[in-house]
Design a protein around this nucleic acid. Structure first.
Length: 549
RNA sequence: GCGCCAGUAGCUCAGCUGGAUAGAGCGUCGGCCUCCGGAGCCGAAGGUCCCGCGUUCGAAUCGCGGCUGGCGCACCA
């Protein structure tokens, strides 16, 4: 809210006059939940009470007495409760947000906290061993929205997808496809233990035979592997496209080997003195950094003598660091949380100045899909788990994205398919989109574009109904809401905000008319601004803002 | 056994980084359609914020100890 800065500055001056200087940015201002507590409130008197050796309410009175605010900003100041100072803004000041919103348009809510510094957001990172499941879907929605929040707050964002294209799991996939090829040729089933049994394996086998009739037995395992990976990459891309998620960088684990970054990382760890050999394996002494046991980096010869996933993981993050990313954020399922400390320790053990909290992690819990009161678990195509494509086909992209973003990442998410499909107020995404569509409807009926509703010459005092004041305040909150959600890496705050805004919209719409009323001009401006903010919030989340439904 | 995460209304969940009388949706009960979309709105009932101790002006929020549930604890990724 633009009134915040002058109020903050005046409070800082007043505090200095009382002999308790406080830096203006450290003064907390909030919007009270209860309108009776004004438009802006501060707890400054409570925090200064101890230093000034006086009761908070007394401090509050003295602060107010020493306060010099610009004319016309505030119409009333109260001391309430234990010592809160409540400011009631002049109505013209509240309505000022309309001009701010309309001037900024689809950029309203953006900020520059990130100062254009580069940040890497890695998410999904599914290995190409099968279609994306609903957990990947949650991660895609979450990662994309977090990237978007960072973009909105002034960071230069790279969306990145990392995948393992050569590990043991990929080998299992190749063997599984090879086995199905054999079966298609009339040999008995021989899918290896730990192999993949989904129907998509059959499909790949069929496509392989169609593409390479000269290798009817799939004898060239390496060739089968490359084909299978390529097919599944295509499939996963289509899944992501169905969700509307785009990546800037696809990073292959194999490139870390071909560029010898794995070797270099290993060399640096050895040089830093945190490694040792035991039982023929090479270990990193992660216990030096608080881990509960040391970790193997290179298996002993009898186990194949290869590197474990741990070393390339560290090399990968060194690469991110060297690409200049001030921050790296990894969105992962909580079942991978054990990698968090390990990767960070690996980076610290390199002693190359990478901070202890690098990379940052956003871990999310599992997804349960419910339909008709029962859990949906089985998917014919994938063999066991429900795929994200099946979900998108069932309820649509907007609902999938919105539902995955509704909850905090660290709570289990129950995806109610019936709710996501319902076209009623119970469905939050529908409810929010409906608010946008209704406002659009007003302009449609009026026969004019929203952009023609100009705040020039409109009397802001015409917007004095309680719902209208609430709308103005809610609009004013949007930029700080976005900033807070970005700092916390919590997109669900945006869905909560939008539902709150939509609720006021529906109440307002139901209670007052716009067209043909004396307040028409002012209400059209309000409608345009609210519609803009709803659209900005939905867009930020990757959800559409339809004009009619 | 150790680590991470969660525990808030009958159900699903918020609670803005420690603030005022703990909120919303669903469900239940009761109202509202000559009017820009009733695909909606308004109201009521509903709470030991898992338990205990602590930190301070002030705790759902922070600390410690329990209890319950989920997920991890590989020379798999």
């Amino acid at each position: 809210m633009r009134a915040h800065e002058p109020i903050r500055a005046a409070l800082a001056d007043a505090a200095a006059r009382l002999g308790a200087p406080v830096a203006a940015p450290d003064i907390e201002l909030e919007r009270p939940r209860d309108p009776a507590h004004g438009d802006v409130a501060t707890n400054l008197a409570l925090t200064l009470a101890k230093a000034l050796k006086a009761k908070p309410r007394v401090v509050a009175e003295r602060l107010i007495a020493a306060l010099e605010l610009p004319q016309g900003l505030v119409r009333k100041i109260d001391v309430a409760g234990p010592g809160f100072i409540n400011f009631f803004l002049a109505e013209a000041e509240l309505a000022g947000v309309l001009e701010t919103v309309l001037a900024a348009g689809d950029r309203y809510g953006r900020g520059d906290a990130g100062q254009s510094k580069p940040v890497n957001v890695e998410f999904v990172s599914a290995n190409p061993t099968g279609p994306l499941h609903v957990g990947h879907g949650r991660q895609a929605a979450l990662g994309d929205a977090i990237a978007s929040l960072l973009d909105w707050t002034g960071w230069r964002v790279t969306r990145e997808f990392y995948y393992n294209d050569g590990g043991a799991q990929i080998m299992q996939l190749a063997l599984s496809v090879q086995a199905r090829i054999g079966e298609l040729r009339g040999r008995p089933a021989a899918v290896p233990e730990g192999g993949y049994h989904g129907e998509y394996v059959w499909e790949i086998a069929e496509r392989y035979l169609a593409a390479y009739p000269d290798d009817p037995e799939g004898a060239d395992l390496d060739h089968v592997r490359r084909f299978a990976v390529q097919e599944l990459r295509k499939e996963q891309d289509a899944d992501l496209q169905a969700l509307g998620v785009k990546f800037d960088v696809y990073f292959l684990e194999s490139s870390l080997y071909t560029s010898s970054k794995v070797e270099k990382t290993l060399g640096r760890l050895v040089a830093a003195g945190h490694t040792y050999e035991r039982d023929g394996a090479l270990w990193l002494k992660t216990t030096d950094f608080g881990d509960d046991k040391d970790r193997v980096m290179r298996k002993r010869a009898e186990k194949g003598g290869e590197y474990t996933y741990f070393l390339p993981d560290v090399a990968y993050h060194v690469d991110k660091w060297e690409r200049g990313f001030a921050r790296a954020i990894n969105v992962q399922g909580a079942d991978h949380h054990s990698t968090v400390t390990r990767v960070r320790i690996g980076l610290r053990a390199l002693e190359m100045g990478i901070p202890a909290g690098y990379p940052e992690y956003v871990l999310h819990q599992m997804v349960t899909v419910m339909k008709g009161g029962a859990e949906m678990k089985l998917s014919k195509r994938a063999g066991s788990y429900m795929t994200v494509r099946e979900l998108v086909d069932e309820v649509g992209r907007d609902a999938v994205r919105y539902f995955f973003l509704m909850r905090r990442g660290d709570s289990h998410l129950v995806f109610d398919v019936d709710l996501a499909k319902s076209q009623t107020e119970e469905n939050p995404v529908f409810y929010v989109q409906m608010a946008h569509a209704r406002l659009s409807g007003i302009f449609r009926v009026a026969g004019r574009a929203p952009e023609t509703a100009s705040p020039n010459g409109v009397n802001p005092a015409a917007l004095d109904e309680p719902e209208e004041l609430l709308l103005l305040k809610q609009l004013a909150d949007f930029p700080s809401l976005v900033a807070g959600a970005a700092t916390a890496l919590e997109p669900h705050r945006v869905t909560g905000y939008l539902e709150g805004l939509a609720r006021i919209v529906h109440a307002w719409y139901h209670k007052y008319r716009v067209l043909g009323e004396p307040e028409e001009a002012a209400r059209l401006v309000l409608a345009r601004a609210v519609r803009q903010v709803l659209a900005n919030g939905l867009t930020l989340l990757g959800v559409s803002a339809p004009d009619r439904m």
